[in-house]
């Protein structure tokens, strides 16, 4: 079979979902944000809920997420996405509501909103992109920055004695009775991307059950903030981030 006949519509096995707009993403080359967006968009597409989904964008590199998801979106003040999502979901309980937040947004300035939304068991999906750094503002230390990890505000590496310990906020939230499904994934290899997609799909399906907050952490790279090439950053992430932030389900619904 010649190559030309392979490239015809009936042989199509993968193309960008139309739930993502055609805009060129503003993210740096190799940044995990784009892949995480696409998986969420594919799930929305496959569940057929594009017209019934409302997303809340954060402050951080993904502040422009509303340009990329072709669903109704609302921008929140820094860290306040779970509070905004609470309001939206309570007024429109039939809609699927998600927040999409970085680690600075969710685990620093928005810690209170995050914890209390999860503690109230708000029936929303929280997507948490943990790249261990404030990407947008120039690579400052985040609560999630690893011990010894260099950032623009910890140039000699994070010293836990003076700067505190990297915060495992996901494990902390899993302790709260309000959370229903809590998992940690990544999007740096095809197998991991598929697992993330499965987790996001489950989380949105659970929203129909009204059982509590679903929380999907994606450990992601920040090649620019980490000052590495994308491929190096993915390797560094495996070797350094995953031992401290192990991948897998943290809290699954009781059967």
């Amino acid at each position: 079979m010649s190559e030309n006949t392979i490239k015809n519509p009936e042989n199509l096995v993968y193309e960008k979902t139309s739930v993502m707009t055609d805009r060129v993403l503003h993210y740096c080359p190799g940044c995990g944000h784009g892949t995480a967006h696409r998986m969420l968009a594919e799930v929305i597409d496959e569940l057929g809920i594009q017209g019934d989904t409302i997303g809340v964008a954060p402050v951080g590199c993904s502040v422009l997420a509303y340009y990329y998801f072709d669903v109704d979106m609302q921008e929140a003040a820094h860290g306040r996405a779970p509070a905004v999502a609470t309001g939206i979901k309570r007024v429109l309980p039939e809609k699927y509501v998600f927040t999409y937040q970085g680690d600075g947004d969710l685990a620093a300035i928005g810690t209170a909103e995050t914890i209390h939304a999860c503690n109230r068991g708000e029936n929303i999906l929280v997507v948490f992109i943990n790249n261990g750094i404030y990407g947008m503002t120039g690579g400052q230390m985040a609560p999630t920055t690893l011990e010894g990890m260099k950032s623009s505000t910890s140039p000699r590496g994070r010293d836990v004695k003076t700067m505190g310990n990297p915060l495992k906020i996901t494990e902390l939230l899993a302790q709260l009775p309000g959370t229903y499904f809590v998992t940690r994934q990544s999007v740096h290899t095809p197998a991991n991307v598929r697992k993330t997609k499965k987790a996001l799909k489950k989380a949105l399906e659970y929203q129909k059950l009204d059982k509590g907050t679903c929380f999907v952490e994606v450990v992601a790279n920040c090649p620019s903030g980490w000052k590495m090439t994308p491929v190096q950053s993915n390797k560094w992430m495996e070797e350094n981030m995953f031992p401290y932030y192990p991948l897998g389900d943290i809290k699954v619904p009781e059967k």
């Binding site: 199509l12 993968y14 784009g34 991307v193």
Partner: peptide, 21 residues
């Protein structure tokens, strides 16, 4: 072989994949 691995990990959704039936 049309496995779509490349397209699935591409952060910028650049790649479209075909595979013969």
């Amino acid at each position: 072989i049309g496995c779509a691995n490349c397209a699935i990990v591409c952060p910028d959704a650049v790649i479209t994949v075909y595979r013969e039936k």
